[in-house]
Design a protein around this nucleic acid. Structure first.
Lengths: 345, 345
DNA sequence: CGACGGCGCTTAACCGGATAAGTGCTCCGA
DNA sequence: TCGGAGCACTTATCCGGTTAAGCGCCGTCG
């Protein structure tokens, strides 16, 4: 295990000072082109890679972004959403040679503590906040800390930092009109966590469209996004006297579980029941029939979030143009598949 | 955004030198108990958190572990395996106040480049190698680099660093005997990537047990673990003249896809076809019928891997007892559910 | 009584970069 | 011919910790 090569080694080899090497490597003025070329060649030949800690200490930047996820291992595992998001985030970050530091936490308190520590340690330059809630203590906490952040989801009222989100109202309208056009009148919805911002947004959007279409029998049940709850709620819905002819699920996992329950109860899909899932993932194409779902490119969404964060971290506040607050991402698109059809009778 | 508190600030406040503060905070001798208590109290009061970069620079340790995943965003998203693994890894790491740095890569070359960079930058103190292959160039590469590593999977022949794995032979035998006892004689297997070590191990184990049981018609088809391939292969298997009465899938995703195909072809499960899935995840309980599967605690497995890595990084090689090479994890257990039953006719 | 050892603390160097300030040189114009 | 600007590079300092070495003071023992 040979010793690492430092700029001092390069300086010695090139017969110049450490300072000159630093200027040369960072493309700053202060050295002649000939010397710069020579230094770069030597650095390349010696396989020089700057020590991250030393650079961080000097410029007081971590070149890393933090992501704290407050979901259980099981939920994280089965929700394609997070891994796709992470994958997108990661792609943008590594293109900008930023690292991604990941931590899984149990409670909001723990999550905030992680942010406090990360920032105090200068382990990260900024964080991405997932699962934005209606009343979200993290928002003020992080802003007060001075820790650059971007909310994954929004728009956040009175935001003190950027958010990246997509309009859910439009897709909600699209689904409901689609199901209505297919003749469905008793439509149920298995929603996500009631405290999440986007759940509330969808709640409102469905209510509005339902009113316009004269669908007054729409029931909404909130879940924790797990398959177990999805199955249990679906079982209850399908066992009721006036059972729905269509169910909208707020995520893919509960939708797949719901489909399983329909099979279990001998209800044919889509003849006896239509199913729509949010968050089109490969999961939706695994089942038979494949699930009609709302497609959005979560990986691209993750990239966009990371970009917003880098932009927010990046330029010193002197810059003329204000950072783009609250970027809006393209809304989800309905992808009709085999799980939806005309209402029976 | 107030300036960070450094040990110099504490030193001033306590009326001592930086050195004394450092000794006090690190629990080393060199200060009286009274002074230590005073310094600790002041540090606490001022909310001191050491700067990671400064400490790293001094002690040349990153207090972080790297994980590079060579899978596509879509695969990562839908495979519960990785998130559960990460979750377990993360739990152990954060308990030891290590960070986890994640990177997603496309090719082996890129992956090795990431290791080289991480190590040169001293961004990580060690890495976990997933998806260990039969001929794995990464193993020697990482060992030559001097980068501490632990293989997630094994045993690795001629290993130059520890591995954590579980015996797959025993569960393979268990499955085959179970299906044999149920009367199945035409059993197919949808395996994973042929180049992966554990696939080869299972290949061998099945072949051996099949020979013992006199099952000579066992066909094995290798897949890339995706639902698409799982579905396609299953469709082919079920369309053949002498179609199997049972299929073993090497992961949960292909198994769920296979179940979908059975539905599609109107083949009842388990009456017309029995299905067994490896890697019991919530996914296996989402379907109807729920999938008989091989349960292993992947989160705990991840923890174990992280522990092995920390142990390998941790004590300087002087230590008396050799680091535990090649920890064996408990084998997977068969969890029979609704997708398996007696062979028909 | 003086030498010695150890405690408790300070001093200073170091980790590996970035960077402001300083130095010697050349070239230019007055 | 000389002052001054500007280039190319060096020197020195800083970032915030860790740590070896040094130093004064006290108690102890020969």
């Amino acid at each position: 295990m040979t010793r690492r090569v430092t700029i001092a080694d390069i300086a010695t080899a090139a017969g110049v000072s450490k300072g000159a090497v630093s200027y040369a490597l960072n493309g700053r003025p202060g050295v002649s082109e000939a010397t710069r070329a020579k230094i770069l060649a030597i650095a390349e030949e010696m396989g020089f890679v700057p020590n991250r800690a030393a650079r961080s200490l000097s410029v007081s930047t971590a070149q890393a972004v933090g992501l704290a996820l407050r979901r259980s291992a099981r939920t994280l595992g089965i929700e394609p959403y997070f891994m796709e998001l992470i994958s997108g985030i990661e792609a943008t970050l590594s293109a900008g040679s930023y690292g991604l530091t990941l931590q899984i936490v149990d409670t909001v308190e723990e999550e905030m503590e992680v942010y406090r520590r990360w920032w105090a340690e200068r382990r990260v330059d900024g964080v991405l906040l997932c699962d934005v809630g209606i009343e979200d203590r993290r928002l003020d906490f992080v802003a007060d800390l001075g820790l650059p952040a971007v909310a994954v989801g929004g728009p956040v009222a009175g935001a003190r930092f950027p958010a990246v989100w997509h309009d859910d109202a439009e897709p909600c309208r699209e689904i409901l009109e689609y199901l209505h056009a297919l003749g469905h009148r008793r439509i149920a919805r298995v929603a996500g966590f009631a405290h999440l911002l986007h759940t509330a947004q969808r709640d409102a959007a469905y209510a509005e469209t339902a009113a316009e279409l004269g669908l007054d029998g729409m029931t909404t049940v909130h879940s924790d996004y797990t398959g177990e709850q999805g199955a249990r709620i679906t079982r209850r819905l399908l066992s009721s006297a006036k059972r729905p002819t269509a169910i909208i699920f707020d995520n893919d996992v509960t939708a797949v579980a719901g489909l399983g329950v329909a099979h279990e109860l001998g209800i044919a899909v889509p003849d006896g029941l239509s199913i729509v899932a949010w968050d089109d993932s490969p999961l939706c194409r695994l089942t038979h029939p494949a699930l009609t779902s709302l497609t959005r490119d979560i990986t691209a969404y993750g990239s966009q979030c990371a970009e917003a964060l880098l932009a927010h971290i990046g330029p010193p506040p002197a810059s003329g143009e204000a950072p783009a607050f609250s970027v809006q991402f393209r809304p989800a698109q309905l992808s009709p598949r085999g799980s939806t059809g005309p209402a029976r009778g």
